[in-house]
Nucleic acid binder design. Structure first.
Lengths: 186, 186
DNA sequence: TAACGATTTTGACTTTTGTCAAAAAAACAA
DNA sequence: TTGTTTTTTTGACAAAAGTCAAAATCGTTA
């Protein structure tokens, strides 16, 4: 069974008919480290899931890269702005480790949304989950010091700190890597 | 025509039947300044819209209030965490000006989601719009200095700065009000 | 193993933001 | 209007985080 379909089912039931249609639309790829899944300016958008590997999403601001999120195994991922707006992405999605992914293009997904209520519900629940994640991130950036944000990340996503370079983590936390290095030394 | 239904229609078409059902469920209230729409710990949640007035949503952390958002006229509002999770809210929603609101309880909304695809689509689009808003807020907190965040707010929501007290604005921006006062003096 | 490049750490210093206390200004009510 | 309360501003100082440059460490590959 496809892992992305498996994942969808965690949000709600899917009839055999939808499952069959999904199977036709879901694509699979294996990509090397450093490769881009999406580059800034592209319009093609997808909802995807990693079977193995690691990705980061980042955008560029004043010549420096800012990491907006990291994607691990078995989490539904997508680039929010272009996915929900059908506009050119300002984000880049890059594999940080060799990765195997399952994905569905948003045009195919939209068609399924129109055809099946169940799929629409799942889409809504995914968007709502995304809201919750972002809300927590806002709270963290709004109220916590760099040190507390780092320790929160350590306890909630210990694997992130293990697998991702210090510079990328610092950017994600909104601090300089020198600062993070000093925090970590303690 | 009810202003909340009008608003829903901006996201997608609604049949007369749904509109009729919505009309039966949508409640209206007029509330004085300082009143609470939702208090921390309550489970009842709603999607609501202000016809007139102003609200803030805040939570308490280490004995201080942190504003998470402000609500103005004609914007769809809801407390994200409890609305999408059906768990007790950690948020308080308070009117900052005398307000007239239209709202629908989330249990009623869920029932409509189950019954009508169109309503589900609208719910999904609202959640997606919420994601976009939160994503921008994360970017701002992650990459911009207090001064730039304030100026961004000034240009995107000039009315907020007009109508909301300096202390509330500072909390929303994640800075101390003394700092905001100094930024503003320039 | 040696050498290269990338990543991380360190040091000295600057800038930004926070803290605490008090004064000034504004808003509100008797 | 006159007090009273709330909000905003100011000052002196402390802490947090950024900047820039250089050194150290790590991983990879020739």
């Amino acid at each position: 069974m496809n892992a992305l379909i498996e994942k969808f089912k965690q949000y709600g039931p899917l009839s055999d008919e939808i499952e069959y249609e999904l199977l036709k639309k879901i694509k699979n790829q294996t990509r090397p480290k450093g490769d881009f899944f999406l580059k800034q300016g592209q319009i093609i958008t997808c909802l995807f899931m990693l079977e193995t590997g690691l990705v980061r999403s980042y955008y560029t601001i004043e010549d420096r890269e800012v990491n907006s999120w990291f994607g691990f195994e078995n989490i539904i991922l997508g680039s929010i702005t272009p996915l929900f707006q059908q506009r050119p992405s300002s984000e880049n999605i890059q594999f940080l480790e060799p990765s195997t992914i399952h994905y569905i293009e948003s045009s195919d997904l939209e068609a399924l949304y129109r055809k099946y209520t169940e799929m629409n519900t799942i889409g809504r629940l995914i968007a709502e989950e995304c809201c919750k994640f972002l809300e927590e991130r806002v709270n963290s950036l709004q109220t916590q010091s760099a040190e507390k944000r780092y320790h929160a990340l350590l306890s909630f996503q210990p694997d992130a700190v293990q697998r991702i370079s210090l510079g990328h983590i610092a950017s994600y936390l909104g601090i300089k890597q020198e600062t993070l290095s000093r925090i970590r030394k303690k």
